[in-house]
Design a protein around this nucleic acid. Structure first.
Lengths: 222, 222
DNA sequence: ATGTTTGTCGAACGTTCGTTCTAATGATAG
DNA sequence: CTATCATTAGAACGAACGTTCGACAAACAT
């Protein structure tokens, strides 16, 4: 039974502001997170031992616990940082675009660019989706829901603009499937870069939903 | 270094024919496989202990080893049976259909029907994709490649029939992504049944690839 | 110098892991 | 009734697990 709050007098993190102030502590922690991501990527969360992780960081097993309090928290930090970053960048990019179709293309491009540039972290985020429980799990789930919501709104805008009608839920989740499945097959030597990949997937998806959901005229299934 | 063949004098399986002859041994093993699938589904392969698995089967820990020689073999048996069955059923269904587009629809329907009817087994197959090593791993990988090949051929036929041009690799893997991602979000209470799901995904995918890959000549399709 | 904080480590904690040994059951056949 | 063999379980194996402890060096302020 791990206690949630009663007795953590050991570690004193002197910085808790939102923007990371680049202290020595933070820099070292970031290094550990990077190396841990590599190990989780290759062996999975359950399959990776704390000894594996410490070896990858060039630090002693006990030394790791100065930077975080449990293996679970380590996974949480990786997932939170990865997910937060991709949402941030998306918001930034969406500012410049107003056309509904283009906004979806921006969404796909942003997702795939980040996915392929940070393939290991994104696999850890996608593959170890439901291992975090309690507060850690709910926090990651909240970011996920937010990200999902953004995509859903983008798609609803397209539907309104073009007068289409189809299930947004299935469309969005199909799109996520297309994009996230990439971690199981993408090889940089064989496959095109993120830009081209995004265009091809966007073409399939956009033409797909546009053609399959013609609303007011004619009698077609929906 | 697990020995592949030298010294297994302990277990004597008196039946080794391809069609399962329903001996008591086979029936009991099948039960164990079913229960093990449930546990793997919920805790993952690494996260599930042999003690969890034995508890789920209502059998003692040691008793399990009478039916299979290792935890790895257990996962192998589950994956092999699941994958073999879905390929079998697909081959059966494809016999009746000749139209290239309809054949792809059959592929999607078969995949989703089996996926949703055997959601747990299919998650274990999809999620624990790269945990099996050595001969077990290569054998499962071979079935996977065969399945992939079938879909690829189906798509190439469509391309030839309709004079389309696009990357079959990306299209096929996008389709697999769409379909396999289902295990992360599908809820029978909320979402439609396999038939409707297959139709919607097939619409998106087929309209997508048909519209996005217009051949050298022609301007106005449909 | 001195004392405090910050960072690191070897060694060990108790627990659980996958697997095996051994012996005892239950059933079946001579 | 007894010999045989499939089937089960109790107890234990050594190894690995996540985590903690106490000691100890740098780093830094006073």
């Amino acid at each position: 039974m791990a206690s949630a709050s009663p007795a953590p007098p050991r570690v004193s993190r002197r910085r808790r502001a939102a923007p990371p102030p680049k202290t020595r502590f933070d820099r070292r922690l970031a290094k550990i997170l990077t190396h841990a991501t590599d190990v989780f990527y290759e062996k999975g969360y359950e399959g990776a031992s704390m000894r594996d992780l410490s070896r990858a960081s060039g630090m002693s097993l006990a030394g790791m616990y100065y930077y975080f309090e449990s293996k679970e928290k380590l996974l949480y930090l990786i997932q939170k940082h990865t997910f937060t970053t991709i949402v941030e960048r998306l918001r930034e990019r969406l500012k410049d675009v107003t056309d509904p179709e283009q906004r979806i293309r921006v969404f796909i491009l942003n997702h795939l660019e980040y996915f392929l540039a940070n393939q290991k972290a994104m696999k850890v985020l996608s593959h170890e989706d439901d291992v975090l429980k309690n507060s850690f799990g709910t926090e990651i789930a909240a970011i996920k829901r937010e990200y999902y919501r953004i995509c859903m709104d983008l798609l609803d805008n397209l539907k309104r603009a073009k007068g289409l009608e189809f299930s947004s839920r299935i469309a969005v989740l199909s799109l996520f499937g297309m994009m996230n499945w990439i971690y199981t097959w993408y090889h940089p030597r064989v496959d095109a870069d993120a830009g081209e990949m995004a265009e091809q997937m966007a073409n399939i998806f956009l033409q797909g939903v546009c053609a399959s959901g013609k609303a007011p005229k004619k009698r077609s299934a929906n």
